[in-house]
Design a protein around this nucleic acid. Sequence first.
DNA 1: TAAGGTTTGTCAATATATTGTCTAATTATC
DNA 2: GATAATTAGACAATATATTGACAAACCTTA
Lengths: 325, 325
Amino acid sequence: MAEQQESSAQYLISTVSKRSGLKTDLIRAWERRYQAVTPTRTEGGQRVYNDIDIARLKLLNQVTSNGHSISQVARLSLDELRNLLKKEETPLIEVADTHQSSSDKQYLTEDYIEKCYAAVIEFDAKKLERHFENAIVELEPQFFIENLLEPLLNKIGSNWQAGLLRPAHEHMTTALIRSMAYILRTNNPAPDNAPSIVISTPISQLHELGALMASIIAEFKGWHVTYLGANLPAEEIAAACKYTGSIAVALGISCPHDDIVVPKEIRRLKKLLGNDATLLAGGKCADNYQLLLNELNVTRIENYSHFKDILDQLKNSHLSKPMPN
Amino acid sequence: MAEQQESSAQYLISTVSKRSGLKTDLIRAWERRYQAVTPTRTEGGQRVYNDIDIARLKLLNQVTSNGHSISQVARLSLDELRNLLKKEETPLIEVADTHQSSSDKQYLTEDYIEKCYAAVIEFDAKKLERHFENAIVELEPQFFIENLLEPLLNKIGSNWQAGLLRPAHEHMTTALIRSMAYILRTNNPAPDNAPSIVISTPISQLHELGALMASIIAEFKGWHVTYLGANLPAEEIAAACKYTGSIAVALGISCPHDDIVVPKEIRRLKKLLGNDATLLAGGKCADNYQLLLNELNVTRIENYSHFKDILDQLKNSHLSKPMPN
DNA sequence: TAAGGTTTGTCAATATATTGTCTAATTATC
DNA sequence: GATAATTAGACAATATATTGACAAACCTTA
């Protein structure tokens, strides 16, 4: 125990009210009547909430405004509440955030980034996961990816290159984010006629966070994504592309390996793909191969927002000239 | 039946009305006259419905508007109602199923394994994910892991070694299972005093499915798991173990590489860990290093059930001699 | 076919439950 | 002292429950 108290920040009821969008009276009533949350107290007896409480109240707010009666859902776990929301899948609502100005949100996000980074340093996967969960609830998934995950990964990446973090830190984070990719993806299934893309990293490129991010983004953009993880030979990537009928292949290149393997693999892959699919390459160290990419007519992905543009373009040109047969 | 304690998803009559398309009065009348549904009650006496009730009412709505009299169909099972609809050839909304009898379970599982394997061959990640999702709901997570995931991975593994599957197949499956690990883990959070374990694969060992399975199993067994993914040098694994205060480290060795790197890494890791943590090794190809493991006093994990036994033993011996300070 | 009974959806009246909000008096915090 | 939190209780607005009734639709059978 005592982990929650020390690990996550403490909030008084007015803050909680602002963040959850519930009146203070209501928060107290829900506690009194249904033990929806059970905050600790100060010596003087004032309620002290943590991040989990806030996430919980936020979820309860959504669930009840979805038609559920508070008495029936107050004792459900975070996961059960999330499932409930997922099931209901009410695309009509999408209420513009009750209040919470954009500056609040920015501050909140930075706060989360700090907390997450601290959890990474401490090697505390559980804590990191909790922060992620809360953040996904508080910020919308889309916002979470762009404004929290991306900066966090950049920070981890650069600090790792600077020697401030061990490889094991990065591995742990990668493993966790991979496992959480599910809840990020799960909300918007791609339509059947969506275009397909294969995302991977070439052989010798073991760091896949960027590629993983890219695949989440592509799913959000309504693509069918076949994510293959790291370190695959060109034939395999090409085979996956062919099997899935993908119109694009994106490679993540983020290790400064600068050896001869990567150029060779890219060459081979380009040859194997021919004109069936567009080849894209991105990542921190893609620059190292700029000449090669130019020569082979491989599209360079500058950053994530550039990636989104490329996806849109490809999608449009694909839709305008449907199946050749 | 009598699965009300299912805890999640309890609905009041207005919600049920919206979802089923039946007026509240009618729902009550059907209950009063024909026991079409038998909801539980709140303390105050209000009706509380679950997902099955809703599915049932939806079906009854369709069936009756198809011409059947409510008195004749009110007591039919979900399956019977569905059959009725199917016969009538009325392409209406499909209703999610939940209920399953235990006798079907084995057959059902084998069916799922077939379907999942087919999805893997077809490179259809979305389909595979759907099968997984359905299976996890239909079978309990625990059962899912032991009776579906394990055989499926074995099948994939052996067929991959036999050359029937491409590496890319295995990569895709790995990536997907990693991302679904979240919902498998998420239901039973480990208590704060749970022992910790680090799970990884040594450098040059890139295939992590086994290690991933092991980490899911360990989480189910109530351990704090720090999962580091594949291909980590010994110092990193040792560092993670030290940081997290883990009492055990499990390595997955499933590639027939039989080179000199793995023995070297295991030796180094054992040295780095000293007596602070128990070193375990498992996986298809751990046999290749049997002599080394014996020499270094590394526990060999025979299979997943053996792994569970080991975890229990370690947990007990850890609890009996708590913190040295 | 017409009469008579049965089924079925709907409604009304009355009583109880649930739930968000509010007031008042008191106590913490800074 | 000003601001914010606390408790306890009260209140009104909805939602639900129960019971009984009723007419339209549906049957059966003479």
